[in-house]
Each structure stands twice: as structure tokens, then as C-alpha cells.
Amino acid sequence: MKLRIGHGYDTHRLEADEGDNSGVHLGGVFIPCAYRIVAHSDGDAIIHALCDALLGALAGGDIGKLFPDHDPQFKGIDSRKLLAEVMRRVGAAGYGVVNADISLIAQVPRVSAHTAVMCERLAGDLGVARDCVNVKATTNEGMDAIGQKLGLAAHAVVLLQGR
């Protein structure tokens, strides 16, 4: 049995945003809030960490190499499209996802009401059952830049199995 483990990490700055459409994309879900993520793409740190974990398991580099933030074709892109390309590469390499475990570290927004939908969407994107994906969140208890609502971060761990 061929197994591979990958770990991914991503972080983005946050800015206050009181606009009508203010909010963030996390785990493939738009969450209305008084902040926006500063990023070249939609800034979905959960999916970015997941992509890096998948690529890491394949020894396939990282999303910065695959989708450079200076390339205009990725400006504002939905991160689920990036994940679809990463999953295409996972399949082409002869692997499938066994499970994924993701941690969001953020003071804002509060995501507990959204994690079930995140898990459902990500499970669909990864081609696995809902109970093979876990998304959880914690705060930094007001400490450092994340605790001061200046940013957020995500870690992801995935297990791949050869087909």
C-alpha cells in the first residue's frame, strides 16, 4: 500500500471592510463579516493550505510555484478552481485522498456555524466522503497579529493512497 502524507500552511492579512459585500472566502464558503482578506486570489487560506498539503504529499512543489501571485490569470480567482487543478495532478500521479484535517487560526471571523458546509464542499472537491474531511478553528486569544485581527492562518494535513 502506497501512502503519502502532506502538510500545508497559509496565511493572509486581514483588513477592516465595512462595504456591502464585505466578507471572506474560507473553505469554499463566503462568510459575511466586517473584514476582507488581502490576497491576489480570493485569499481562501483553508484551501491554499490544503493545496499545499496535497502538493507536498506528491513532492510537487507548492501553490506559489503552480499559481504565482504575479500572474494576472489568477487575480481574484476562486480557490476551488486551484484545488481542482491540484486534484487533477493528484489523480494523474495515481493517488487519491484518504482524509484531510484542517485547522484555521483566526480571531475573526467566527466560523463554527460554517464548518459543516466547508467540510461538505471540500469533501466533494477531494472526491471523498464527508466524514473524511475535518475543519476546525481556534483563536490566538488576542495575541500577535492574528489575535489583533490583522491576519489569519491555516494548517492542513492530508493522507494520500496510491490506487
Rank of each mutant, 00 (worst) to 15 (best):
M1G: 12
M1C: 09
K2E: 10
K2R: 00
L3W: 01
L3N: 05
L3H: 11
R4V: 06
G6D: 11
H7Y: 12
Y9F: 15
D10V: 02
T11Q: 09
E18V: 08
D20A: 14
N21Y: 13
N21E: 14
S22K: 06
G23I: 13
G23A: 06
V24P: 09
V24N: 04
H25I: 05
H25N: 15
L26F: 00
G27I: 13
G28L: 02
F30K: 10
A34K: 11
Y35T: 04
R36G: 06
V38Y: 05
A39S: 15
S41Y: 01
S41C: 01
D42C: 05
D44I: 04
H48E: 15
D52V: 07
A53F: 02
L54R: 03
L55T: 10
L55Y: 10
L58N: 08
L58I: 09
D62Q: 09
I63H: 08
K65A: 15
L66G: 03
H70S: 07
Q73W: 06
Q73R: 15
F74W: 10
F74Y: 15
K75L: 13
G76N: 13
I77A: 13
D78N: 13
S79C: 05
E85T: 04
E85Q: 05
M87F: 10
R88V: 11
V90L: 07
A92C: 02
A93P: 03
Y95S: 09
G96Q: 14
V97Q: 00
D101H: 07
D101Q: 12
D101P: 02
D101C: 10
I102L: 08
I102Q: 05
S103I: 12
L104G: 01
L104K: 11
I105C: 14
A106T: 00
A106R: 00
V108E: 15
R110P: 02
A113E: 15
A116K: 13
M118Q: 06
C119G: 07
R121K: 14
L122Q: 04
D125I: 02
G127E: 13
V128A: 07
V128D: 09
R130L: 11
R130K: 10
D131K: 04
V133K: 03
V135Q: 02
A137P: 00
A137F: 03
T138P: 00
T139D: 15
E141P: 02
E141W: 14
M143T: 09
M143P: 00
G147R: 07
K149N: 12
L150F: 09
G151W: 14
L152Q: 12
A153F: 06
A153I: 09
A154I: 06
H155D: 15
H155Y: 15
L159R: 09
Q161S: 11
R163P: 01
R163D: 07
